[in-house]
Amino acid sequence: MKGIQHGILLRKLNYSETSLILNFFTLENGFQAYIFQGGKKKKGNILQALSLVEITAFRREDSDLGKITEINPTFIPQSIPYHPLKSGLAFFITEVLAQVLQSSDKDAEMFAFLEHEVKWIDNSDEFTNYPIWFLLKLADQVGIGINVSDPNGSIFDLQDGVIANETPSSHLFVNDEVVAILIELLQSEKNALLAMHIHKTHRKQITEHLINYFRLHINGFKTPKSLSVMQTIFE
């Protein structure tokens, strides 16, 4: 069956000298995988991390892998592919999303959120704290948002996703100087959070705590390989 879908590129793998395996989060069907024969030559220039595209593809009922016949951009980024910080951020985000959304069905709200954020990143110059904001917002989007039960809490319970003062029975908790900062971040609107001055050491700690939180709550989630690179370029 042939159909048209709107997708956000999450992963690109070489399949042969000219072909690609592509993973998208689509508006119509959630997470989808395709083979794009000759894709390296045909559209290699538009197939970048977080590319927003329209996909024309065939899919057999007995196969999980569709076959792309045409792909075209629905948004042409002006800065993400050419800006080292933004391209590094985009690669990190796609690596996170590819794991979080790998079994996701249709979710129009999630797609709209991601589409908006791709365009925001392309147009914005305020993104030093963005990886933290994105991880917090993504946690909310997938139903594992962190709750502040005590504004003066000092313990982040990774198991229950709660910040409080009670030490949990498990050893899955954080009790360090960045918990107070995390509370402030969770209580801040996007613009205020992005404008906050956070020492690079604290940014690194918070990001690592959030990655560990995703590892605990998302089945099969692993620390993104791009994390260390992203932390380096954001210093």
Rank of each mutant, 00 (worst) to 15 (best):
I132M: 11
S154F: 04
L135T: 04
K137F: 03
A139N: 05
E126Y: 06
G153L: 06
W133H: 15
D125N: 15
I155F: 08
A139I: 01
Q159K: 14
D122Q: 09
Y130H: 13
D122R: 10
W133C: 10
L136C: 13
W120S: 09
N152E: 15
T128E: 14
S124C: 02
W120V: 08
D150V: 10
G143L: 09
L138Q: 01
F134M: 08
D122F: 09
L138D: 00
L158F: 07
N129I: 10
S124W: 01
Q141L: 00
I132R: 05
V142N: 00
N123H: 13
F156D: 03
G145P: 07
L135V: 11
D157I: 04
P151S: 04
N147G: 01
I144T: 05
T128L: 14
D150T: 08
N147L: 14
G153H: 00
L136T: 06
I144W: 04
L158G: 08
K119E: 12
D122A: 10
W133P: 09
P151D: 00
G143N: 07
K137Y: 04
F134W: 10
I155K: 05
F127S: 10
F156V: 03
N152D: 14
Y130R: 09
K137I: 00
D122T: 12
S149M: 09
G153N: 01
D157M: 06
D150Y: 08
L135Y: 02
F134H: 09
N123S: 15
S149I: 13
F134K: 08
F134T: 10
G143K: 09
Y130S: 13
L135W: 02
G143M: 07
Y130E: 12
D140Y: 00
N152F: 14
G143Y: 02
D122N: 14
K137P: 07
G145N: 05
N152Y: 14
T128F: 14
I155Y: 07
S124T: 14
L138I: 03
F156W: 04
F127A: 00
N152R: 09
Q159M: 07
Q141A: 03
K119M: 14
I132Q: 07
V148I: 15
E126G: 00
L158I: 07
F134Q: 08
I132S: 10
D157E: 08
N123R: 15
Q141K: 15
F134V: 12
I132E: 03
L158W: 00
D140A: 04
P151W: 01
L138V: 01
S154Y: 02
V148A: 05
E126V: 13
S149A: 15
L135C: 05
P151I: 01
A139G: 15
P151A: 02
I146D: 11
F134G: 10
Q159T: 04
S124Q: 08
N129Q: 12
S154L: 07
S124G: 09
Q159F: 06
Y130F: 15
K119S: 09
Q141I: 01
K137V: 03
V142K: 04
Y130V: 09
T128D: 14
L138S: 04
L138Y: 03
S154E: 12
Y130N: 12
T128Q: 14
D140I: 01
K119G: 08
D150P: 12
D157R: 02
L136G: 11
D157A: 06
D125R: 14
W133D: 13
G153E: 01
V148G: 07
I144N: 11
Q159P: 00
